[in-house]
Structure formats: structure tokens, C-alpha cells
Computed example of a mutant assay.
Amino acid sequence: MQDHQKTKSASAAPANPDRRRAIKTLGVSAAIGVGATAIGAPFISDPAKAATTTWKVQTSWPAGAGLNTFKAWCATIKERSGGELEFKAFAAKEVVGDFELFDGVKNGVLEAMNSFTVYWAGKLPATAFLSSYLMGLRYPHEWDIFFYSKGGLQMARDVFAKQGIYYVNRIHHGPNIVHSKKPIRSIEDFKDLKLRVPGGMIAEGFAAVGAKTTLLPGGEVFSALEKGTIEAADYTGPAVNWDLGFQQVTKYIWMGPPGLESIYQPVDLMDFCVGMNHWNKLSPQMKQFVESEVQVYSNVHHAAIQKADLEAWDKFAKAGTEVNRLPAEDLPKFQRVAVPIWFKWANKDKDAARVFKAQLELMESPSMGYVTPDMYKGQKLDL
């Protein structure tokens, strides 16, 4: 099949050079529009001659700017691939449950997924370190240093490959915040608070400071808050949370100190993953196309979320929502809680240890410098 696709690509391109240049320009324009470094995706073949492969792709987004951006991007794939590949987009829970996405791709119900990577920490401990965690890497560029300068991307691909899934790339999102029915003004206010969290190290961190944590997918948070099953909930940023109606069932928002919007998920990374059998059916050119497109999507997605978040703050203010920020003096308290949890999770398996070791080296480096050896004295990594 790959040789057949190569032949089509080679024979079709000279017959339609203007269209080829136009599609390339479209990809470049999309990238430049959000300050991207990725180049536009290549035109693959003549859409009139291509046999279209359709992938069902479900996202974790239930609504809002995230879902809208995902669907808009998916709608461009068929034309930009020259008709060879089409993404049929599905919102959260439209095909499988939010926490069933991984198995849906693994078992072939879906060809691909756009998920919050932290959801899979219970299945794959290393994935707890492939998205933000309590007091870990704090800004998007730090994550990109890990992925592209410390071997993080290949580590992620190795972890998912063992499950028959190809991890194409990370997708930048933004910080998560906590909506609450009662004010949270210090670390002590988490004691006995019924709090929704995404699981993994984040759940253990908040449980360690006294919260009564519950694991729920994003699509169930509003109803749980409305019914009083939970008193507070972590979930994405202000724009999506506004669209989900959290202002109707909570009065307060809790965030990190100024300059650090979230201390537990400051860069809530998503991913784009494909069933390995479907990935392996693609030609080398189409694999490159998908990888380039996911990079472009990450840039567009991140920019759209940040813009929407900035606009959402005024809406919360007008709705009477009170924003409380963590006092800076509480950061060391969370740091003391976080460190033993880091090492506990890192030592769950060799993959987790390998991923965390690379991140610990970054956090200790002069470029970042917010972790020092004395902070984890007595802790060891089982490599």
C-alpha cells in the first residue's frame, strides 16, 4: 500500500503544481497566524484520484473553544492531504466515554484520539509525567525543552507503543483552575473539601493536604457541582469552564500566586494518538503530513484557548465570581507535599522513572532552578 501511495504522489504532483503550492501556502498561513514554528503540511496527491482513508477521532473536549478549534482543524485535513486522509471529529463521549478513549483507540473503535494525557496515569504511570503535575514543570517552553531537547517525545512514543498506540505529539493547552462553592484562600482550606480532580499525582497531592478527592471526566463536573456531590472542581481554564456553566453552580475560583496561574496543572497538555495499525498503513509522506498538522494544531489550539481565556475573565467578574490566589508563602508547603509523590510515581515503573529523571534534571538546571537536591534528600529513583 505504501508503494502505491508513493507512486500516486509522484505522478500527481507535476500535473497540478499550482494547487500543490496553494495547499502549502494554506498550511504556512495557519502556522504564521499563531506565531508557529512548524511549516505548513505538504500537499500529497490529486484529490480527484486519491482513495480517502477516514479516521474517527474523538477529543476530550465536551464544549467551548477547545471543541470548536478541534472540529475546525479536523475539517481541513481532507483538502490539505489532497483527499488521502479525512478526520471525522467527535466531541467527548460521542463514541466512547471520556475515560474509555485509550481503550477505544487500542481496540479499534476509534482510529485516533485527542485526549488529556493525564487521564491515563492509572494505566500507564509514565503518563503522569507527560502533562503537568503538582509543582512540576511550569510553563509551555519548559515542556518543549523536555520534549525536544531531553528526548521526551521519543520517551512518550516508546510508552504508548507498548500499548499498540502511536503518540504523534503533545498539544499545548493552558492552565487549570479550581471552581468552588466556598472560598479557598490558603492550603488549609482544602481540608475536607469534596474536590474533583483528574487523578494521578494531582489527586494524591490534594488528598495529602486534606481534600476528599473524586475522579470524574470533564463532562460530568457541572452536574456533580449542581447536585452538591462535590464542592469544588479542577477543570481546564476560564473560557471552557464558562461555556460549561460553572459560574452557575460555584461562586469562587482558586488559582496559584501571581505569575503562576496553576500550581498543579499549569500546562495541561493534551496529545494526539493513533492506533499503531492505522499509523503503519500510512505512507512516509502521510506520516510526515500528520506530524506536521498536529504541530500546527497545537499552535492554533493553544492560541485560541489563551485568547478565549483572557476574554472570559470579564464574564466571571460580571457574574460576581470571586477570584482567590494562593499566597506565595504557601508554595513551599505544596512543594514539601509534592516531592515524595513525585518519587512514588516515578518508581511505579522504569518508564516513569526515566521520564521523571529527565524532568528533574531540567528543574534543577540553572535555566529553571526551582528544585535543589536538598528538597529530595533521602529519595531515590529506581532506574
Rank of each mutant, 00 (worst) to 15 (best):
T117F: 05
K150I: 00
A121M: 09
S149Y: 05
L153W: 00
M155Y: 02
A121P: 07
S149K: 13
P125K: 02
K150V: 00
G151I: 02
R157I: 06
A126M: 05
D158Q: 12
H141C: 11
A121V: 13
F147L: 06
Y133C: 03
L134I: 12
D158A: 12
T127R: 00
E142F: 03
S131P: 05
A161M: 11
V118D: 13
G152Y: 00
E142V: 07
M113F: 12
M113P: 04
E142H: 12
W120Y: 14
A128G: 15
D144F: 10
W143A: 00
F129E: 03
W120P: 03
Q154S: 15
S115C: 14
T117N: 11
A161N: 11
Y148D: 09
V109K: 15
L110A: 08
M135D: 09
D158P: 08
T117I: 13
G122W: 05
R138L: 12
V159L: 04
A161F: 06
Y139P: 05
A121Q: 13
A126Q: 03
A161Y: 08
S131I: 05
P140S: 08
L124E: 11
E142R: 02
A156M: 07
F116N: 13
L110H: 07
P140L: 09
S132G: 15
A156W: 01
A126P: 09
K162T: 07
Q154K: 14
V109H: 14
M155G: 03
E142Y: 02
L130P: 08
A126Y: 02
Y148R: 05
E111Y: 07
Y139Q: 14
Y119C: 12
I145L: 10
V109T: 15
F147D: 02
L130S: 09
G136K: 00
S115T: 13
Y119H: 15
F146R: 00
F129H: 03
A156R: 01
R138P: 07
V118N: 14
D144T: 10
A112N: 07
A126V: 06
F146K: 00
